[in-house]
């Protein structure tokens, strides 16, 4: 597999899309670093507020990159060159997964370095507990792995580059919307005021607190929380919005990412082994 990795990495470093997405990632880091400085005017902003923001946008970046990078193996027919000379299908699959993971982590790193340097200069260094910081960092890396695993199985099983890329992007959008829907459900208040008035452009509320029928009881809430933690965009949202507070289930997120990675990679490898290639 070392040979395949060497070939894949060589191709990666010549890939224009990879460099474009890495540059865009660094640009987001730059903009958020400057935004952090603006926030600092209003309240005490700290660097860790947006330090894992890459966890949010990497889902889309990985969808675009994996779909195109792996899809070109099929569109050019180059995957045949690897199999004809005797590389196993497992090795081809894993080498592609590893190079895509490395590429996406490098995109994250580009964001991280730019944001961290700029943020440190503008608002100061980390104030978060080092253990917690490393925990979040590990969680974000496993999230990237989960994303890449999902997109790798799609790109390796759909032989059309265009279709594979579109499916990856659409899947990200669907997961993102579903995560937003779940988030909305989780944030329905338990009680609401029995009256509101909007006279003279002023909203007033008060009176007796009434139980909200849209609020979910504890069991429903736990299920929604689990789904939100399971969905990669849900995890990405939690990691990217540390400004709202710490992550509730810090141990559950990496475990769920690992579960997604193992489930998609093992099934992907088994299906790819039996796949008829043209």
């Amino acid at each position: 597999m070392n040979k395949l990795l060497a070939a894949n990495f060589s191709r990666l470093f010549k890939n224009k899309l990879f460099w474009a997405l890495t540059a865009l990632s660094a640009l987001i880091g730059l903009l958020l670093g400057l935004y952090l400085n603006t926030l600092d005017i209003y309240y005490n902003a700290v660097i860790e507020h947006f330090i894992f923001y890459y966890a949010f946008f990497i889902g889309l970046f990985a969808a675009v990159f994996c779909g195109m990078f792996l899809g070109s193996e099929y569109s050019n027919g180059a995957i045949r060159n690897k199999l004809i000379i005797g590389h196993s299908r497992y090795a081809v699959y894993l080498a592609n997964l590893i190079v895509c993971l490395a590429a996406c982590l490098m995109m994250c790193l580009a964001y991280f370095i730019v944001y961290f340097i700029l943020g440190s200069l503008l608002v100061g260094g980390l104030v978060i507990d080092t253990g917690l910081f490393l925990g979040y960092l590990g969680t974000s890396i496993l999230l990237v792995l989960a994303y890449v695993s999902i997109y790798t199985i799609i790109s390796m099983l759909i032989t059309s580059k265009a279709t594979g890329s579109v499916v990856c992007i659409i899947l990200f959008i669907v997961l993102l919307f579903y995560a937003m829907l779940v988030y909305e459900k989780l944030n329905v208040p338990e009680y609401y005021d029995n009256f509101t008035s909007e006279a003279d452009d002023e909203v007033q509320s008060g009176g007796k607190q009434i139980e909200n029928p849209d609020n979910h009881n504890n069991t429903d809430g736990a299920v929604y929380e689990f789904i939100f933690d399971l969905l990669p965009p849900g995890q990405g949202y939690q990691l990217s919005s540390l400004v709202d507070g710490p992550i509730a289930h810090i141990w559950r997120l990496p475990l769920l990412s690992l579960f997604i990675t193992l489930a998609t990679t093992l099934s992907g490898m088994l299906i790819f082994r039996r796949k008829n290639l043209k």
Partner: peptide
Amino acid sequence: INKVRRRMGAVVETPSIY
């Protein structure tokens, strides 16, 4: 068989090139 396949080359349908 994987080792033996190193001794063969092929162009199936269209040439496989980047």
